[in-house]
Protein backbone atom coordinates (compact mmCIF):
# COMPACT_ATOMS: atom_id res chain seq x y z
CA UNK A 1 0.00 0.00 0.00
CA UNK A 2 1.22 3.48 -0.79
CA UNK A 3 0.64 6.31 1.63
CA UNK A 4 -2.59 8.24 1.25
CA UNK A 5 -4.63 10.77 3.18
CA UNK A 6 -7.81 9.54 4.82
CA UNK A 7 -11.05 11.42 5.32
CA UNK A 8 -14.31 10.35 6.87
CA UNK A 9 -16.81 13.12 6.05
CA UNK A 10 -20.02 13.31 8.08
CA UNK A 11 -22.16 14.86 5.37
CA UNK A 12 -22.80 14.03 1.76
CA UNK A 13 -22.00 17.61 0.82
CA UNK A 14 -18.59 17.36 2.48
CA UNK A 15 -17.92 14.08 0.71
CA UNK A 16 -18.83 15.59 -2.66
CA UNK A 17 -16.67 18.64 -1.96
CA UNK A 18 -13.70 16.46 -1.04
CA UNK A 19 -14.14 14.43 -4.22
CA UNK A 20 -14.56 17.50 -6.40
CA UNK A 21 -11.43 19.12 -5.03
CA UNK A 22 -9.12 16.17 -5.64
CA UNK A 23 -9.05 14.29 -8.92
CA UNK A 24 -6.94 11.50 -7.40
CA UNK A 25 -9.24 10.85 -4.46
CA UNK A 26 -10.97 7.47 -4.15
CA UNK A 27 -14.18 6.58 -2.40
CA UNK A 28 -14.16 3.79 0.17
CA UNK A 29 -17.44 1.97 0.70
CA UNK A 30 -17.04 -1.62 1.91
CA UNK A 31 -13.51 -1.79 0.53
CA UNK A 32 -13.79 -5.31 -0.88
CA UNK A 33 -12.16 -4.28 -4.13
CA UNK A 34 -10.37 -1.08 -3.17
CA UNK A 35 -8.46 -2.44 -0.16
CA UNK A 36 -6.97 -5.47 -2.01
CA UNK A 37 -6.07 -3.22 -4.93
CA UNK A 38 -4.34 -0.78 -2.56
CA UNK A 39 -2.51 -3.62 -0.85
CA UNK A 40 -1.20 -4.80 -4.18
CA UNK A 41 -0.08 -1.25 -5.00
CA UNK A 42 -2.20 -1.28 -8.13
CA UNK A 43 -3.80 2.03 -7.24
CA UNK A 44 -2.29 5.14 -5.74
CA UNK A 45 -5.02 7.49 -4.53
CA UNK A 46 -4.10 10.78 -2.91
CA UNK A 47 -7.01 10.57 -0.49
CA UNK A 48 -9.36 7.80 0.53
CA UNK A 49 -12.80 9.15 1.40
CA UNK A 50 -14.65 6.80 3.72
CA UNK A 51 -18.44 6.97 3.30
CA UNK A 52 -19.31 5.01 6.41
CA UNK A 53 -20.41 8.05 8.42
CA UNK A 54 -22.98 9.33 5.94
CA UNK A 55 -25.91 7.27 7.18
CA UNK A 56 -26.38 5.61 3.80
CA UNK A 57 -27.18 2.12 5.10
CA UNK A 58 -30.74 0.83 5.37
CA UNK A 59 -33.55 -0.95 3.58
CA UNK A 60 -37.04 0.47 2.89
CA UNK A 61 -39.83 -1.48 1.26
CA UNK A 62 -42.88 0.38 -0.01
CA UNK A 63 -45.71 -1.32 -1.86
CA UNK A 64 -44.02 -1.54 -5.20
CA UNK A 65 -40.36 -0.89 -4.60
CA UNK A 66 -37.41 -2.00 -2.48
CA UNK A 67 -34.99 0.82 -1.76
CA UNK A 68 -31.57 -0.06 -0.46
CA UNK A 69 -29.12 2.49 0.91
CA UNK A 70 -25.77 2.54 -0.86
CA UNK A 71 -23.79 1.50 2.23
CA UNK A 72 -26.03 -1.48 3.01
CA UNK A 73 -23.96 -4.64 3.17
CA UNK A 74 -24.68 -7.75 1.12
CA UNK A 75 -25.23 -9.62 4.38
CA UNK A 76 -27.91 -7.14 5.46
CA UNK A 77 -29.74 -7.47 2.13
CA UNK A 78 -29.45 -11.25 2.24
CA UNK A 79 -30.84 -11.38 5.78
CA UNK A 80 -33.63 -8.83 5.30
CA UNK A 81 -37.03 -10.44 5.78
CA UNK A 82 -38.59 -7.60 3.79
CA UNK A 83 -36.31 -8.07 0.80
CA UNK A 84 -36.82 -11.83 0.96
CA UNK A 85 -40.58 -11.25 0.87
CA UNK A 86 -40.62 -8.59 -1.86
CA UNK A 87 -37.79 -9.72 -4.17
CA UNK A 88 -36.46 -13.06 -2.96
CA UNK A 89 -34.15 -13.26 -5.97
CA UNK A 90 -32.40 -10.10 -4.83
CA UNK A 91 -31.86 -11.40 -1.30
CA UNK A 92 -30.57 -14.67 -2.73
CA UNK A 93 -28.19 -12.83 -5.05
CA UNK A 94 -26.78 -10.80 -2.16
CA UNK A 95 -26.40 -13.97 -0.10
CA UNK A 96 -24.35 -15.58 -2.86
CA UNK A 97 -21.75 -12.84 -3.31
CA UNK A 98 -18.20 -13.76 -2.30
CA UNK A 99 -17.90 -15.28 1.16
CA UNK A 100 -19.13 -14.34 4.64
CA UNK A 101 -16.35 -11.83 5.18
CA UNK A 102 -17.02 -10.14 1.84
CA UNK A 103 -20.76 -10.03 2.47
CA UNK A 104 -20.32 -8.45 5.87
CA UNK A 105 -18.17 -5.62 4.49
CA UNK A 106 -19.13 -5.27 0.82
CA UNK A 107 -21.93 -2.84 -0.08
CA UNK A 108 -24.38 -2.47 -2.93
CA UNK A 109 -23.19 1.06 -3.65
CA UNK A 110 -19.57 -0.03 -3.77
CA UNK A 111 -20.38 -2.88 -6.12
CA UNK A 112 -22.33 -0.66 -8.51
CA UNK A 113 -19.82 2.19 -8.48
CA UNK A 114 -17.02 -0.25 -9.28
CA UNK A 115 -19.05 -2.12 -11.93
CA UNK A 116 -16.76 -5.13 -12.05
CA UNK A 117 -17.71 -7.09 -15.19
CA UNK A 118 -18.10 -10.22 -13.04
CA UNK A 119 -20.06 -8.66 -10.17
CA UNK A 120 -23.52 -9.95 -9.32
CA UNK A 121 -25.43 -6.77 -8.39
CA UNK A 122 -25.26 -5.14 -11.84
CA UNK A 123 -27.32 -8.05 -13.21
CA UNK A 124 -30.08 -7.43 -10.67
CA UNK A 125 -30.07 -3.67 -11.19
CA UNK A 126 -30.28 -3.99 -14.97
CA UNK A 127 -32.81 -6.82 -15.07
CA UNK A 128 -35.12 -5.25 -12.52
CA UNK A 129 -34.86 -1.82 -14.14
CA UNK A 130 -33.71 -0.25 -10.89
CA UNK A 131 -33.06 3.44 -10.38
CA UNK A 132 -29.76 4.59 -8.95
CA UNK A 133 -29.95 7.76 -6.89
CA UNK A 134 -26.87 9.87 -6.27
CA UNK A 135 -26.13 13.11 -4.48
CA UNK A 136 -26.97 14.82 -7.77
CA UNK A 137 -29.69 12.94 -9.64
CA UNK A 138 -31.46 9.71 -10.41
CA UNK A 139 -30.08 7.43 -13.12
CA UNK A 140 -31.96 4.59 -14.76
CA UNK A 141 -30.21 1.24 -14.92
CA UNK A 142 -30.22 1.30 -18.70
CA UNK A 143 -28.23 4.54 -18.64
CA UNK A 144 -25.97 3.68 -15.72
CA UNK A 145 -23.75 0.82 -16.93
CA UNK A 146 -21.35 2.02 -19.61
CA UNK A 147 -18.87 -0.84 -19.97
CA UNK A 148 -16.34 -2.68 -17.89
CA UNK A 149 -15.55 -0.69 -14.72
CA UNK A 150 -17.29 2.30 -16.33
CA UNK A 151 -20.51 3.97 -15.18
CA UNK A 152 -22.49 7.15 -15.67
CA UNK A 153 -21.20 8.52 -12.37
CA UNK A 154 -19.37 11.83 -12.50
CA UNK A 155 -16.14 12.18 -10.58
CA UNK A 156 -17.80 13.91 -7.65
CA UNK A 157 -20.95 11.83 -7.68
CA UNK A 158 -21.79 9.47 -4.84
CA UNK A 159 -24.49 6.79 -4.96
CA UNK A 160 -26.94 7.23 -2.09
CA UNK A 161 -29.51 4.53 -2.74
CA UNK A 162 -30.86 2.07 -5.26
CA UNK A 163 -34.56 1.51 -5.81
CA UNK A 164 -35.80 -1.77 -7.26
CA UNK A 165 -39.35 -2.07 -8.63
CA UNK A 166 -40.87 -5.28 -7.26
CA UNK A 167 -41.14 -7.81 -10.12
CA UNK A 168 -43.83 -10.42 -10.60
CA UNK A 169 -41.18 -13.11 -10.98
CA UNK A 170 -37.44 -13.04 -10.93
CA UNK A 171 -34.45 -15.26 -10.38
CA UNK A 172 -30.68 -15.05 -10.50
CA UNK A 173 -28.51 -18.03 -11.38
CA UNK A 174 -24.76 -17.81 -11.31
CA UNK A 175 -22.18 -20.08 -12.90
CA UNK A 176 -19.11 -19.34 -10.85
CA UNK A 177 -15.57 -19.05 -12.08
CA UNK A 178 -14.06 -22.20 -10.52
CA UNK A 179 -11.09 -20.27 -9.09
CA UNK A 180 -12.30 -16.81 -8.13
CA UNK A 181 -15.95 -17.77 -7.58
CA UNK A 182 -17.00 -14.53 -9.27
CA UNK A 183 -19.75 -14.89 -11.87
CA UNK A 184 -18.31 -16.45 -15.01
CA UNK A 185 -21.86 -16.23 -16.33
CA UNK A 186 -24.61 -14.81 -14.14
CA UNK A 187 -28.12 -14.29 -15.46
CA UNK A 188 -30.89 -12.34 -13.77
CA UNK A 189 -34.32 -12.75 -15.33
CA UNK A 190 -37.35 -10.72 -14.33
CA UNK A 191 -40.86 -10.03 -15.48
CA UNK A 192 -43.00 -7.33 -13.96
CA UNK A 193 -43.68 -3.60 -14.15
CA UNK A 194 -40.63 -3.03 -16.34
CA UNK A 195 -41.50 -5.84 -18.71
CA UNK A 196 -39.44 -8.92 -19.41
CA UNK A 197 -35.77 -8.22 -18.81
CA UNK A 198 -32.76 -10.52 -18.89
CA UNK A 199 -29.40 -9.22 -17.73
CA UNK A 200 -26.13 -11.12 -18.06
CA UNK A 201 -23.03 -10.47 -16.00
CA UNK A 202 -19.58 -12.08 -16.14
CA UNK A 203 -19.82 -13.05 -19.77
CA UNK A 204 -19.62 -9.91 -21.85
CA UNK A 205 -16.53 -7.93 -22.77
CA UNK A 206 -18.41 -4.75 -21.99
CA UNK A 207 -19.67 -5.82 -18.58
CA UNK A 208 -23.33 -6.43 -17.76
CA UNK A 209 -25.70 -6.42 -20.74
CA UNK A 210 -29.30 -7.20 -21.64
CA UNK A 211 -29.91 -10.41 -23.54
CA UNK A 212 -32.47 -8.99 -25.93
CA UNK A 213 -33.10 -12.17 -27.93
CA UNK A 214 -33.99 -14.00 -24.74
CA UNK A 215 -36.19 -11.09 -23.65
CA UNK A 216 -38.09 -11.22 -26.94
CA UNK A 217 -38.65 -14.96 -26.66
CA UNK A 218 -39.68 -14.78 -23.03
CA UNK A 219 -41.95 -11.81 -23.80
CA UNK A 220 -44.00 -14.15 -25.98
CA UNK A 221 -43.97 -17.01 -23.50
CA UNK A 222 -42.40 -16.99 -20.03
CA UNK A 223 -40.90 -20.46 -19.96
CA UNK A 224 -37.54 -22.12 -20.28
CA UNK A 225 -38.85 -23.92 -23.36
CA UNK A 226 -39.42 -20.55 -25.04
CA UNK A 227 -35.65 -20.14 -25.10
CA UNK A 228 -35.07 -23.17 -27.32
CA UNK A 229 -33.40 -21.95 -30.45
CA UNK A 230 -32.32 -18.68 -28.81
CA UNK A 231 -28.56 -18.31 -28.90
CA UNK A 232 -26.08 -15.55 -28.39
CA UNK A 233 -23.03 -14.76 -30.43
CA UNK A 234 -19.65 -15.47 -28.87
CA UNK A 235 -18.28 -12.38 -30.60
CA UNK A 236 -18.56 -10.05 -27.63
CA UNK A 237 -17.93 -12.61 -24.94
CA UNK A 238 -14.97 -12.64 -22.59
CA UNK A 239 -12.37 -15.34 -23.04
CA UNK A 240 -9.86 -16.54 -20.46
CA UNK A 241 -8.19 -19.71 -19.21
CA UNK A 242 -11.41 -20.85 -17.55
CA UNK A 243 -13.89 -20.21 -20.33
CA UNK A 244 -13.55 -19.48 -24.02
CA UNK A 245 -16.01 -17.12 -25.69
CA UNK A 246 -18.00 -19.98 -27.28
CA UNK A 247 -18.25 -21.77 -23.91
CA UNK A 248 -19.45 -18.57 -22.25
CA UNK A 249 -22.01 -18.01 -25.02
CA UNK A 250 -23.22 -21.58 -24.50
CA UNK A 251 -23.43 -21.06 -20.74
CA UNK A 252 -25.50 -17.89 -21.20
CA UNK A 253 -28.12 -20.09 -22.86
CA UNK A 254 -28.00 -22.80 -20.19
CA UNK A 255 -28.02 -20.40 -17.26
CA UNK A 256 -30.80 -18.25 -18.73
CA UNK A 257 -33.01 -21.33 -19.05
CA UNK A 258 -32.19 -22.32 -15.49
CA UNK A 259 -32.97 -18.84 -14.23
CA UNK A 260 -36.36 -18.81 -15.94
CA UNK A 261 -37.10 -22.25 -14.49
CA UNK A 262 -36.07 -21.04 -11.05
CA UNK A 263 -38.25 -17.93 -11.34
CA UNK A 264 -41.26 -20.15 -11.93
Amino acid sequence: MYDFAYQKPSSLADAARALASDADAKVLAGGQTLIPVLKQRLNKPSTVIDLSKLGLAGIKVSGDAVTIGAMTTHAAVAASAEVKRAIPALAALAGGIGDIQVRNRGTIGGSLANNDPSACYPAAVLALGATITTNKRSISADDYFQGMFTTALAADEVITEVSFPVPARAAYVKFKNPASRYAMVGVFVATGPKGVRVAVTGAGQGGVFRHTAAEAALGKSWSAAALDGVSISPDNMNSDIHASAPYRAHLVGVITRRAVAAAG
Partner: peptide
Protein backbone atom coordinates in the same frame (compact mmCIF):
# COMPACT_ATOMS: atom_id res chain seq x y z
CA UNK B 1 -3.53 -26.06 -12.98
CA UNK B 2 -0.41 -23.96 -13.29
CA UNK B 3 -0.79 -22.46 -16.73
CA UNK B 4 1.91 -20.63 -18.63
CA UNK B 5 1.42 -18.94 -21.95
CA UNK B 6 3.74 -19.94 -24.79
CA UNK B 7 6.39 -17.45 -23.80
CA UNK B 8 6.49 -18.39 -20.13
CA UNK B 9 4.20 -15.83 -18.53
CA UNK B 10 2.36 -17.43 -15.62
CA UNK B 11 -1.36 -17.03 -16.31
CA UNK B 12 -2.56 -18.73 -13.14
CA UNK B 13 -0.55 -16.53 -10.81
CA UNK B 14 -3.14 -15.87 -8.11
CA UNK B 15 -6.21 -17.43 -6.53
CA UNK B 16 -8.31 -15.48 -9.01
CA UNK B 17 -7.12 -17.97 -11.60
CA UNK B 18 -5.52 -20.91 -9.79
CA UNK B 19 -8.37 -23.14 -8.65
CA UNK B 20 -7.62 -24.36 -5.16
Amino acid sequence: HAIYDESGQLLSGSYMDYTM
